[in-house]
Design a protein around this nucleic acid. Sequence first.
RNA 1: GUCCCCAUCGUCUAGCCCGGUCCAGGACAUCGGCCUUUCACGCCGACGACAGGGGUUCGAAUCCCCUUGGGGACGCCA
Length: 467
Amino acid sequence: MRMVITRFPPSPTGYLHVGGARTALFNWFYARHTKGRFVLRIEDTDTARSTQASADSIFEALEWLGIDWDEGPYFQSQRFHIYAEYVQKLLDTGHAYYCTCSPEKLDAMRQNAMATGGKPKYDGTCREKILPKSNDAVVRFRAPLTGTTVIQDVVKGDIVFQNTEQDDFIIQRSDGTPTYNFVVVVDDITMGINTVIRGDDHVNNTPRQIMLYEALGAELPVFGHLPMVLGKDKTRLSKRHGAMSVTAYRDMGFLPEAMINYLIRLGWSYGDQEFFTREELIEKFSLEHIGKSAGVFDIDKLLSLNADHIKITPPRLLTPHLLPFLKAKGYSAEEGIYLDQVIQTLNARSKTLEELAESSRFYYADAVSYEPSAVDKFFKMEALNPLNLLIQKMEATPNFTVAVLEAIFLSVMEATGLKLGKIAHPVRVALTGKTASPGIFEIMEILGKEQVLARLKQAVRHIVDMK
RNA sequence: GUCCCCAUCGUCUAGCCCGGUCCAGGACAUCGGCCUUUCACGCCGACGACAGGGGUUCGAAUCCCCUUGGGGACGCCA
């Protein structure tokens, strides 16, 4: 059993989008699952569109997802000498030749083919000319004219292509730079990549790459083509569908664990299990059980998974992810017991970190701001008496715990003959300004005696002033 | 246009390879209910799918063919 070596080869022409992230994840988890290696390679041969900023943003996104690499990042732009060597090798063995057909001529050829119902292909004008190297010449691969090329795909099964469908594709441009299909193969060979997992938008490239492997006398890797991720309208995910960038999801308050869980589960299954931690995925992920059909990106499911992950993540592990959201709202929050408690009361009622931060407002705000509807509903004159009794009794108690507080409420209920609800609701509004919140006893214990009394008194003043 | 791939609830999927245990299971969403000081969480329930048509077979979601639908690729982009 040889060691599995996978890779992720983004081109730095933009941010890392969810589709790319999913591909990276499949490769990374497979490598980790098999205790193999994961290589990162930056495909920047398109010098016009590649930028360092894009590369950096991709690194940032991968890092956020917790994807690390055992080798790289390699930059193809620094490997031109290797590609040149391999082009020469192909030229020397007769597997490639120079071609001087102009782009205009090629374009006309394509137009014509499309119009007459054929597949646009190079017609082989220069194939037998044995042209010498020249300034404006490209190098073409001499593809087999007959037979078939089959991809033994681990997810799709065998895919057969007629070689007549293929043409003599360019492997080196007239400016001397190598093209995609060629560099991928050279890189994968020289980097020892033996497992190629990528989007199925690459299946049509694969026969060409297989031909290259064969011409180079190299062993074929295992191929696995993942079905695409589609938007709500079942078309390829694009900017029209809203957020595409992985970091945009981070900024909306998603946990990387949830993102990973969702993206892997979109297209792969493990029986009926929906929830996975990173460790579980490393343990259970394999190339079996990858679905063949495209999947629709569903934010609701992501949201639900995010809620689940927020719920089970211990406060101290959640803190670093949550802090930026708290700070952005201007709260003076910091890691500690207080924040732990804040999280514990809110983590079961938040779908995102943003939501959690928003609902923690009353824990950090200096003065409670009341929701008008909450005031209308619960700040009534009848609330005054129980509120004042509560204040009295609370002031007298040294212990401010849930148990003591419950006893105090009980005694006020007895004294006033009111049900708990009648007392609790105004208190909730006094404490949080809202009609929905965590349990009020927990809130009071966390807020502490001083804060609670201040808020209760503020509420009393407010009610009195209203009348 | 040509080539390639795909096809189970609205969505993600289990089941398909090795036909019967499937009048098709789970999850998200939706709608009810329970719990409860509120909102959530949790629990219970409802709704809801084998694209269509032909075969093969005693029997097909499962195997074969066709149709339809969807996606992808056809670059001196990656």
